[in-house]
Computed example of a mutant assay.
Amino acid sequence: MQALKPEGIEAREYQRAIAKSALTANTLVVLPTGLGKTIVAMLVASDRLSEYPQTKILILAPTRPLVLQHAKFFADHFPYREAKSTVLTGETPARLREAAFSESTLVFATPEVIRNDVSANRYSLRSVSLVVFDEAHRCVRSYAYSEVAQAYKLQASNPLILGLTASPSAKKSRVEEICEKLAITNVETRREADEDVTPYVQEVSLNYERLALPEKYREVSKILRAGLDERINKLRSMHQLPANVRVSKRLLLDLGEKLHRSLRRGGGGALFGAVQLQAQAMSLNHAIDLLETQGSQSADRFLSKLERASTRSSRGPASQTKAASRANLRGSSIESRFQNNCVHTV
């Protein structure tokens, strides 16, 4: 059966060429942002369902917003309209994921969910004829990506892997590491200057203007940073983070992977406290980013969500941030939530 074309969009020549190549082997696609990596994934998915009509397509992305973005794009343009789809993230209860996976042809998920479900034998990847790893460069540090790839290689009857990335690294060794972790043997790269790409590239002029953070925002940011520093110092005292090194989001993410890996190997005791501190630190870090880049309303919505999650769970401790109650600013609702609860992540 001939594969159908995407609906409502016209695939470009270089996208069709990349997709054709990707059907022959496990492939890493390197395309700058805006050149349509998702369309390439859709072309490959359409062809795989045409060749293996009783199989599933699994599209992985590292964050829930990206997962939802892919799900919407496929809902709008995937040619097999009868194909049932589902979204599986940490917000989907485990008891519902098994049925959702088995009943769907298109599965959009975060890698941690798939890894955990496969490890728990909720379902297998035997009937999956294509796994798409968006942001494939993250497999270098995301153990979930590499573990899903390993399980897929062992379980699938007709496996094919497609990695998508805009920036794998300038280092050849990093690209080789991505390929090794995802069992990739074929690399397709395009740049904006390539002959088959230039007809689709529009010149863009960018002007950057640096703005000072409003005083009231700085007050809230100071409170949140104090809470973040407190948790970082506790993690350092537990020898989970290095001393005298600036703790970045990347370092916190790596710590989270390491701690959860230790828990899966049977660790316990102080590990649970470290996991909780790491989750709280990630929440505070994200709240600071939202406040300073998107404003008080975005940060307030995020902390409201954490407050609701903490209400559903007895694991989230209250934050003792006395300075929050003294701040006189529009973002005071942020501070009161932070003071009362709101540092537990799901």
Rank of each mutant, 00 (worst) to 15 (best):
G273I: 08
A274S: 06
A274G: 14
A274E: 02
Q276A: 10
L277W: 14
L277Q: 05
Q278L: 04
Q278M: 07
A279Y: 11
Q280R: 07
Q280W: 00
S283C: 14
S283N: 12
L284E: 01
L284V: 12
N285W: 11
N285T: 10
N285A: 07
H286M: 09
H286S: 06
A287V: 12
I288S: 04
I288W: 01
I288Q: 05
L290P: 00
L290S: 04
L291P: 07
L291R: 04
L291F: 01
E292D: 14
E292N: 12
T293I: 01
T293Q: 13
Q294A: 13
Q294Y: 08
G295A: 06
S296H: 03
S296V: 12
S298F: 09
A299F: 00
A299V: 11
A299D: 05
D300K: 02
D300L: 13
D300F: 15
D300W: 10
D300H: 08
R301I: 15
R301K: 09
F302V: 09
F302R: 03
F302G: 00
L303I: 15
L303Q: 04
L303A: 01
S304M: 13
L306C: 03
L306Y: 06
L306F: 04
L306Q: 08
E307M: 10
E307F: 06
E307A: 02
R308I: 13
R308K: 09
S310L: 11
S310G: 09
S310A: 13
S310K: 10
S310Y: 01
T311N: 14
T311Q: 13
S313D: 08
S313C: 07
R315I: 06
R315V: 08
R315W: 02
G316F: 03
G316D: 02
P317I: 09
A318P: 08
A318I: 15
S319Q: 14
S319F: 02
K322D: 05
A323N: 04
A323E: 13
A323F: 02
A324P: 04
A324D: 08
A324T: 11
S325W: 03
R326S: 06
R326K: 10
R326E: 12
R326F: 08
A327V: 14
N328F: 14
N328D: 12
N328G: 09
R330S: 06
R330T: 02
G331A: 14
G331D: 02
G331S: 10
G331V: 00
S332P: 01
S332A: 08
S332W: 03
S333R: 13
S333Q: 11
S333A: 12
S333L: 02
I334W: 04
I334T: 01
I334Q: 03
I334E: 00
I334S: 00
I334G: 00
E335T: 11
E335I: 07
S336M: 15
S336G: 09
S336E: 13
S336C: 10
